[in-house]
Amino acid sequence: MFEDPRGVLVRAWEESQAERRHWYGVDGRGGRWLFESIVGDEGELWAVKQIEITPGGEVRRYWWRHPQDDHGFLTDQPLHPHDDGLAELPADAFHQVWQASECACGAGG
């Protein structure tokens, strides 16, 4: 697998002081998705962390240290919560799930 060049940009976003928003949604298969996003210069919402919980309970995490794997990738498009069926989530709820899960890549964070 090649190194994803988005990692540098996503890391810069994550380390920035930009406003954070957190989101939760369920897809048509029963998978759950959680996102930590920053608010961009023009109000767009860019994911800096993403959690997928499959219908079978597998947890996958994507962020600048692990932007993609054989199962998926950190979204490279801005989030559109209303169009994507996402609800706002309290930051502490997102971080509890993030901290309780392990990245399949072995990277901490």
Rank of each mutant, 00 (worst) to 15 (best):
R11D: 15
P55T: 05
W46A: 09
A93F: 09
R11N: 10
S37N: 00
D41Y: 15
G7I: 02
L9T: 14
S16Q: 11
R6T: 05
C103G: 13
W63F: 14
H95N: 06
L45T: 15
G7L: 01
A107W: 03
D4H: 15
V26E: 13
L79E: 01
R29Q: 12
Q17G: 12
D27F: 05
G56P: 09
P5C: 13
R65V: 11
G28S: 12
K49R: 12
H71N: 07
L45A: 08
A93I: 00
G108Q: 06
D83C: 13
I53T: 12
D27Q: 04
E36Y: 02
V39K: 13
C105I: 00
R60Y: 10
R20S: 07
P5A: 13
T75V: 00
S37A: 12
E42P: 11
Q17N: 11
G109F: 05
G56M: 07
V97I: 07
E15F: 10
L45M: 08
F73S: 02
Q77H: 11
S101C: 11
Q50M: 12
L74N: 13
A104G: 06
A12Y: 14
F35I: 00
W13I: 08
P55V: 03
V59M: 01
A100G: 10
G108P: 03
S37G: 05
D76A: 04
A87E: 11
E102L: 10
R65F: 00
G7Q: 14
F73P: 09
E19L: 09
G72H: 01
L45G: 14
E42G: 08
A107F: 06
D27A: 10
P55Q: 07
M1D: 01
Q77N: 11
C105V: 01
G56Y: 00
W98G: 05
R6C: 04
P55D: 06
